[in-house]
Design a binder for these strands. Structure first.
Lengths: 332, 332
DNA sequence: TCCGTTCATGTTGACGTAAACATGGCCACA
DNA sequence: TGTGGCCATGTTTACGTCAACATGAACGGA
């Protein structure tokens, strides 16, 4: 900066003003400084700027590494929304979904140079983690339980599960089986509870839950399990990957979808429309979730104390070809 | 820091020494300082540290937003490897794969506080982009053409395409059709060239290339195209997503896989083993690519000038159920 | 006992930037 | 013509940390 100032024949302060686009600089001076900056290849030093201003213009994102379609999409929209708001994204990965690694990740986070953080981690890990977030650091929590300490942005899981279950009931199925995600997952339990509530509200029998772990392999196992049960005509899978595994199990057994059994997923992965058959599913607006998260966080960083609040993002039913009328209805 | 020093009754320099784990501090003093740090909730200021040392301990990653399975996996392994090496990751997203957005992203990158950068972008965008990388900034390029200015880490695309093509020839197919990725993609053209070379080396006819754009939808269109051609018994898809689209087109037309036509993919997505039928494909070691990239970059940052060099990561054939003997062979 | 060495700890200054305050020229209005 | 105010620009200083040098106590060997 001093070099630029000397080269342009002005003071460093003037260079600083030009660099920050402040108003009160003579156009001629500004041009001279800009020319010198270009010529000397000047780049403002972020560290010095941050040290002086106390602002890093950086947001930390802590998440289970991009193992899932949803996380990946969320991260994508977070990073784009942050870039638009003039913030960088620092990624703090959690190597494995264990308490130990979550705690480690939060420790790394604590020594980061960030103005605020986005937490995209299963709630029970966060609460159990030996977390010492720097006081006063703005935080927003995504896809987790409601909290009274931080704002939360979440997909309306209950609405989605209800849409899925109701869709199948509307097609004439007596009841709907559910292949749920792991019981320690907040999303999984919310979807499961809403599925159950929807069945009960309709006065239907609630079949036992088949438990998976979000992977296609667990879906496949669940599918084999379901094949051995009587009267399974409709299955609501906790996510699209498990739905894919279920479809595979049904194919292998020669069980026709949707003629004999309907399958619905949750997420609407990019590939779901090309599954065989194309998967009826619940579309999640991960882009909206990420964007809203950043908006809330930036408001917290730049504005006043944001009130802890929960922002719900809607879901939408996408009907494709893996769901159809119940077999008995068809016969009638 | 001054508060901690006062509280512990030492100088700030001693606090600094404790904070950095330097050797020459009396154990009793160290404990006293640590206690004060804890009590006052002291966190070292990264900006000041970076300003003083000239090191940010941060690596920038510029990539087309996590649109593809491969990018996502690569980013995952990059972030974990970086964390292990004591570096943070700053993500610089490219909103859309256009020249304009790539240039914008590089502009943002230039004002980042990073010690080095990983470029995960199609080569032709990088060369055409109006890129002014800060001089002397260590760089590693992933999944791109060889360069003489920066080290490159790349999957051995040629080997993978050869494995795929040869696998189908070995099964008795007369030739192998190819659904390629976009012609401006470096990976796509390398796979295509290797497929062609393998066929020619075996003295087989080289069918016209069917062009896709990596998406399942384009694979579906390619599949419909292939259905109208004569003598298609083996298809090598440029990636698993297009393979999925092809499978769907074949299913809809009642063409049996692999009895009537074999399909092989490239990537080995997490879901590929649950496609119907489970997809034979080429497994890419994205984890190794990311990890190697960070190793090379960190060596460049911390060590001497790394010689520009290309690191090849091997691929591997994963045989599942979407490929089988050629129909004519079966009849014989 | 004296001097040199070692080691724990303290003092000073600089990294690059920008806020706060200072300066001096110019213009408008009385 | 004098005076007050505005505006472009300059000067000073502090942000938090750590390298370099300074200090002084303790200890060992002659």
């Amino acid at each position: 900066m001093a070099d630029v100032a000397r080269h342009a024949g002005v003071s460093t302060q003037t260079v600083s003003r030009v660099s920050n686009g402040l108003s009160n600089v003579e156009p001629a001076t500004r041009d001279r400084v800009l020319a010198s900056m270009r010529e000397l290849g000047y780049r403002p030093n972020r560290a010095a700027r941050a040290l002086r201003s106390g602002q890093y213009r950086t947001i930390g994102v802590i998440m289970f590494t991009l193992s899932s379609f949803g996380n990946m999409r969320t991260l994508e929209s977070i990073s784009i929304a942050a870039a638009r708001a003039g913030y960088s994204i620092t990624l703090i990965p959690v190597e494995e979904p264990t308490q130990e690694h979550v705690t480690k990740a939060f420790a790394r986070l604590a020594e980061q140079a960030v103005d605020g953080i986005v937490i995209v981690i299963e709630a029970h890990f966060v609460s159990q983690a030996d977390v010492e977030l720097p006081e006063g650091l703005p935080v927003v929590v995504i896809d987790s339980s409601e909290r009274d300490d931080y704002p939360v942005v979440d997909t309306d899981q209950a609405m989605g599960a209800q849409l899925a279950t109701q869709h199948l009931l509307d097609l004439g199925h007596d009841t709907v089986w559910h292949v749920a995600g792991p019981s320690d997952s907040y999303s999984a339990t919310r979807r499961e509870a809403s599925w159950r509530a929807t069945l009960e509200r309709a006065g239907r029998a609630v079949p036992p839950v088949v438990r998976g772990d979000w992977t296609t392999a667990s879906g496949y196992r669940a599918g084999i399990d379901l094949l051995q049960r009587e009267g399974v005509t409709a299955v609501f899978a906790g996510n699209d990957q498990m739905a894919l595994g279920i479809l595979r199990a049904f194919h292998e057994a020669g069980r026709r979808v949707p003629d004999e059994v309907s399958v619905i997923g949750f997420d609407d992965m990019a590939e779901s429309d090309s599954f065989w058959p194309p998967l009826t599913t619940i579309h999640q607006r991960f882009d909206v979730v990420g964007q809203t998260g950043i908006e809330v966080l930036v408001a917290e960083i730049e504005g006043q104390q944001a009130l802890p609040e929960t922002f719900m993002v809607e879901t939408r039913l996408v009907v494709r070809e893996s769901t159809g009328p119940a077999p008995s209805v068809r016969l009638a």
